[in-house]
C-alpha cells in the first residue's frame, strides 16, 4: 500500500512524501501556556511540596499500567481552535482539498504538540489513553476546536521509552490494550495519523438520468472514495516509518463531513505505531474462559 500511486489522483493535494511537518506552524501561542506550566509544576515533588498524579484512567487501567511498570504523572491536554475557511471546489470534479487537508492536519498537530509539551514538562516517557476530539461551538461559525487529552506516564525502572524523535511516546490504546501490547513484547512509539479532505463530485444531470432506476456501480465515486482512503492511510504509514515502527495497531478510519456539506468528507486514519522490544519474547498463552459476570 505504501507504493500507492498518487499521480492518478485528480487533486492538487500533497503526495504522501510531502506531509505537513510534525512541527506545526501558524500559531502565535507558546507551546506551553503559563497556566498549564503552573498547574503541572504543582504535580511535581519538590522540597516542602508533596507531588501527586492526576489521571483519567479507570481503576482497572491504572492498575494495569502499574503492572507493566509505568506510573502516571498527570492528566495532560492540548487544544487549538481553528478557523476552517471553505475551499473552492469544482462542482463536478472529485479532488482532494489540499488547503483543508493541511488545516485539519495542522490543527490536530497543534493540539497534540501542546499535549506533548505538557507531558515533556512532567518528564514523561509517554502519554497513554490519548483521545482526539473535535468540538464545534454555536458561537464560532466555521470554527472547530481540536483537543487532545491523555495521561502522561513514566517508567518506574528509569529506562527511557521516548521515541526516536526524543519525544514521549503517545498512544490511543486503553490501559487494557496497553498491558496486552506489552505482553506481546511490543512498545508503543507514537500515535500516528493521516488525513485527507476530499470533495466527491456531484453527478451531472445526464449521468443521473442514464443510471436512474439501475443498481450499477458508479466508477467515479468508487474511485474517489478509494483514492481518499488510500491517501489518508498512506500518510499515516509515512508517519509510522519516520518513527521506525514495525507496525501500526488499532488502526481506524473515520469519515466525517464536519461542516462542509455532504460532498466534502474528511478521511482520518489513526493508529498506534509500535516496535518490537526484544526479538526473543515469548507470548504467554492466553486461557479460555466463559465469564460468569454480567
Amino acid at each position: 500500500m505504501t507504493d500507492q500511486d498518487t499521480t492518478g489522483g485528480t487533486g492538487d493535494g500533497p503526495t504522501p512524501g510531502e506531509l505537513p511537518s510534525r512541527t506545526a506552524t501558524g500559531s502565535s501561542l507558546p507551546d506551553l501556556p503559563p497556566d498549564a506550566a503552573r498547574r503541572l509544576a504543582e504535580l511535581e515533588d519538590r522540597p516542602g511540596h508533596k507531588g501527586m498524579f492526576t489521571s483519567d484512567l479507570s481503576v482497572n487501567e491504572f492498575l494495569l499500567i502499574k503492572e507493566v511498570g509505568f506510573h502516571p504523572l498527570g492528566f495532560v491536554m492540548g487544544s487549538s481552535i481553528y478557523h476552517l475557511g471553505i475551499q473552492t471546489r469544482r462542482w463536478s470534479q472529485s479532488q482532494e482539498l489540499a488547503k483543508l487537508t493541511g488545516a485539519m492536519y495542522n490543527a490536530r498537530e497543534l493540539a497534540m504538540n501542546r499535549m506533548d509539551a505538557e507531558a515533556d514538562e512532567l518528564g514523561a516517557d509517554g502519554v497513554v489513553g490519548v483521545r482526539l476530539d473535535v468540538n464545534y461551538y454555536e458561537w464560532g461559525s466555521d470554527t472547530a476546536e481540536f483537543i487532545a487529552v491523555g495521561t502522561a506516564v513514566k517508567a518506574e525502572d528509569g529506562h527511557s521509552y521516548r521515541n526516536n524523535q526524543g519525544k514521549p511516546f503517545t498512544s490511543d490504546l486503553s490501559g487494557q490494550d496497553f498491558w496486552t501490547l506489552m505482553q506481546t513484547g511490543h512498545v508503543p512509539l507514537g500515535l500516528v495519523m493521516g488525513t485527507c479532505v476530499y470533495h466527491i463530485a456531484h453527478r451531472g444531470l445526464g449521468q443521473t438520468l442514464r443510471t436512474a432506476g439501475q443498481n450499477v456501480e458508479l466508477p467515479n465515486f468508487t474511485q474517489a472514495l478509494y483514492e481518499a482512503r488510500e491517501l489518508a492511510m498512506t500518510r499515516m504509514q509515512v508517519e509510522a516509518n519516520e518513527l521506525g515502527a514495525a507496525g501500526i495497531v488499532g488502526v481506524r478510519l473515520e469519515e466525517k463531513t464536519h461542516m462542509w456539506g455532504d460532498h466534502t468528507i474528511e478521511f482520518l486514519s489513526l493508529g498506534t505505531a509500535v516496535a518490537r522490544a526484544a526479538d526473543d519474547h515469548r507470548i504467554p498463552e492466553p486461557r479460555t474462559v466463559i465469564s460468569l459476570d454480567g
Binding site: L64, Q176, W179, T180
Partner: peptide, 8 residues
C-alpha cells in the same frame, strides 16, 4: 480470591 484477567 477473585482472579484478575484481561480479556482479549
Amino acid at each position: 480470591e477473585p482472579e484478575p484477567v484481561v480479556r482479549l
